[in-house]
Computed example of a mutant assay.
Amino acid sequence: MSQEQINNPLHGLTLEKILTRLAEHYGWNGLYEHIRINCFANEPSIKSSLKFLRKTQWARDKVEALYLKTFK
């Protein structure tokens, strides 16, 4: 195991688990208030949000940062 993964607080968490937990905690409107991404405002779902976040690194970085701020 590399040193990077040992110190990675998100190691072992999938993007789906992160997004699901944030959506349960904040709700979609709350997520949109924290991170202004249209996939959280216009007919949001886990599936559509995951599709966008997997293709858009800057958005994924914001979601991961919010997760760390909220739960770690």
Rank of each mutant, 00 (worst) to 15 (best):
M1S: 14
S2R: 10
S2L: 12
Q3P: 01
Q3F: 10
Q3D: 14
Q3I: 14
Q3H: 13
Q3C: 09
E4F: 10
E4R: 13
Q5W: 09
I6V: 15
I6G: 02
I6K: 15
N7T: 11
N7W: 10
N7G: 11
N8F: 02
P9E: 05
P9V: 07
L10E: 03
L10D: 03
L10A: 07
H11A: 14
H11V: 09
H11Q: 14
G12H: 07
G12P: 04
G12T: 06
G12L: 08
L13M: 11
T14F: 02
T14L: 02
T14H: 01
L15M: 11
E16P: 04
E16A: 15
E16S: 12
E16C: 02
E16L: 08
E16Y: 01
K17C: 05
I18P: 03
I18T: 07
I18K: 06
I18M: 00
L19A: 02
L19G: 03
T20H: 04
T20S: 12
T20W: 01
T20R: 11
R21V: 05
R21H: 09
R21C: 00
A23E: 10
A23F: 04
A23L: 06
E24H: 10
E24V: 07
H25P: 00
Y26N: 05
Y26G: 01
Y26Q: 02
Y26E: 02
G27N: 02
G27P: 05
W28M: 06
W28L: 06
N29A: 11
N29C: 03
N29R: 12
N29S: 13
N29L: 11
L31E: 05
L31A: 03
Y32N: 09
E33Q: 14
H34E: 15
I35H: 01
R36V: 11
N38Y: 08
N38T: 11
C39M: 12
C39W: 07
F40I: 01
A41Q: 14
A41T: 03
N42Q: 13
E43I: 09
E43T: 12
P44H: 08
P44Y: 04
S45Y: 01
S45W: 02
S45F: 03
I46T: 07
I46D: 01
I46Y: 00
K47R: 15
S48G: 04
S48V: 09
S48I: 11
S48L: 10
S48N: 14
S49M: 03
S49I: 00
S49N: 05
L50T: 05
K51R: 14
K51F: 11
L53I: 06
L53D: 00
L53C: 01
L53F: 02
L53N: 03
R54Y: 09
R54K: 15
R54L: 09
R54S: 09
K55E: 12
T56H: 14
T56A: 08
T56V: 13
T56C: 08
Q57A: 13
W58F: 14
A59R: 04
A59Q: 06
R60A: 11
R60T: 08
D61V: 10
D61R: 14
D61T: 12
A65I: 04
A65F: 03
L66T: 06
Y67R: 07
Y67Q: 05
Y67I: 06
K69C: 00
K69D: 12
K69Q: 15
K69N: 12
T70W: 05
F71M: 07
F71V: 06
F71H: 08
K72T: 14
K72V: 10
